[in-house]
Design a protein around this nucleic acid. Structure first.
Lengths: 247, 247
DNA sequence: CCATGTGAAAGCGTTCACAGCG
DNA sequence: CGCTGTGAACGCTTTCACATGG
């Protein structure tokens, strides 16, 4: 049963917005850095991308105003977010692009490279396997898995497709800690259970299902049908907007 | 220039969480229904899916507790969300699955079918074109677009690939109101501008860029690299967690 | 003088706790 | 009695406004 009732509602269920609700409350020692607010974490990658754009244009510094424009947020937001990192801006000038980029990469843990598993070699899975953006950013898809014997033994962009029966072994052998789940919804929960069992601690779930995992596992959901349904809501509320009042 | 500074920071920039920040403040007339909180809108599709699961199992009613388990949220949240719809539950019993499903579909505007354009027929674009989940839910990809002459004239799962030069014409002819943008980031802004110009009002953006659109256009972002970077953050904060205090 | 960094205020969203009703 | 519906409390997020400092 994929959607078995969670023992506790506080489980780190993959709701797509809050992957690790576990916030620490302990006093924390000297050099240690406190967990950032979740909303801030979601924006840091956008600032990083804005910096890449600025760096391309040989810009030595960038203002919170410019970063805000690139990230589609308020400038005060940018300053507050960056101030959580101990902030390395200069008043009257702005942020040093190179320095800030380094700090953001460090804070996001992007100095490390990650080995990633891809589970499900259907249409979406194969597209994910071909996607260049992952490797470029240090996320290496080093193994794919499927149940279909016709797909097992094949390759996706140089990555071998294994049987899911070999999942535990391959995940351990290749030191895989992240996974992309692109299976049918019906098997997604058991797949993620196997992945976690084998040592995976971060999961990006593309299956249209909410998955339950232990609180020390991060899971995020990318749900295409849900996105379209959200758009549908706003579209339809626009259509009805001028049907009520005449004012 | 894709990331041109927004004239006003209040533009409906595609930040992935808040597509239409425009909340109305007018008193609103009799039969009219107020806009739902954005956070609620994001959860309604999950409840709908939970109901589909329950319906499969011949369940006539479902409790907020059960819905919560399926959606990975708190039961009080479910009740509050559903109460915004005027709620059709029965105290002591729960919600009638069929009735609630109908109301959710109505509220989300899913009684209508949508014609969708797919822009960018690269790996990701083709995978999206093959994805079954869209048509199943009433979102019909009726045209694809690309600049590559080798792709133009081809078909993706029965959908013709047009030149982007014909975008305006085809979008109008086929009454397309939604679009999936799966182009390189560099051209995404001009693509979305053309789409909006041609009559598209809802956009799902897969390009790694923040797009600016008028406030009456809905845009949502699905950014795979950003998702992995967020996971990376929590992964690395877990690794550092036990490096500071010994307690 | 200009743009950062930040308290304080305002706005949202979530959770609690229980009244209300079938 | 059980489960919904909801005011009120709480906590997180955003925005404002301005002191601060290169």
């Amino acid at each position: 049963m994929p959607g078995s009732p969670a023992p506790s509602p506080k489980t780190a269920a993959g709701d797509g917005s809050g992957p690790p609700p576990a916030r620490r409350r302990v006093p924390l020692a000297a050099g240690e850095r406190r967990l950032l607010p979740e909303a801030t974490v979601k924006r840091l990658p956008l600032y990083l991308r804005a910096l890449a754009d600025a760096g391309d244009q040989q810009q030595a510094t960038i203002s919170s105003e410019e970063l805000a424009a690139h990230a589609g947020v308020n400038a005060a937001q940018v300053r507050k977010d960056l101030s959580y990192l101990g902030s390395y801006g200069t008043r009257g000038i702005g942020y040093d692009t190179g320095l800030l980029r380094q700090h953001l990469r460090h804070e996001l843990g992007l100095e490390k490279e990650y080995n990633v598993a891809l589970v499900g070699a259907g249409n979406l899975g194969r597209a994910l396997g071909h996607y260049r953006g992952f490797t470029e950013r240090g996320f290496h898809v080093v193994a794919a898995f499927d149940t279909d014997p016709a797909k097992v033994g094949g390759f996706i962009e140089g990555t071998e497709v294994f049987s899911v029966r070999d999942l535990a072994r391959v995940v351990k052998d290749r030191a895989i800690t992240m996974a992309l789940v692109a299976t049918p919804a019906a098997v997604a929960q058991q797949v993620v259970d196997s992945l976690v069992e084998a040592g995976v601690t971060s999961v990006l779930n593309f299956a249209p299902a909410v998955l339950n995992v232990a609180p020390d596992i991060s899971i995020r959901r990318v749900d295409l049908a849900v996105e379209l349904q959200i758009l549908s809501y706003y579209d339809s509320s626009r259509r009805h907007e001028y049907a009520g009042t005449g004012s």
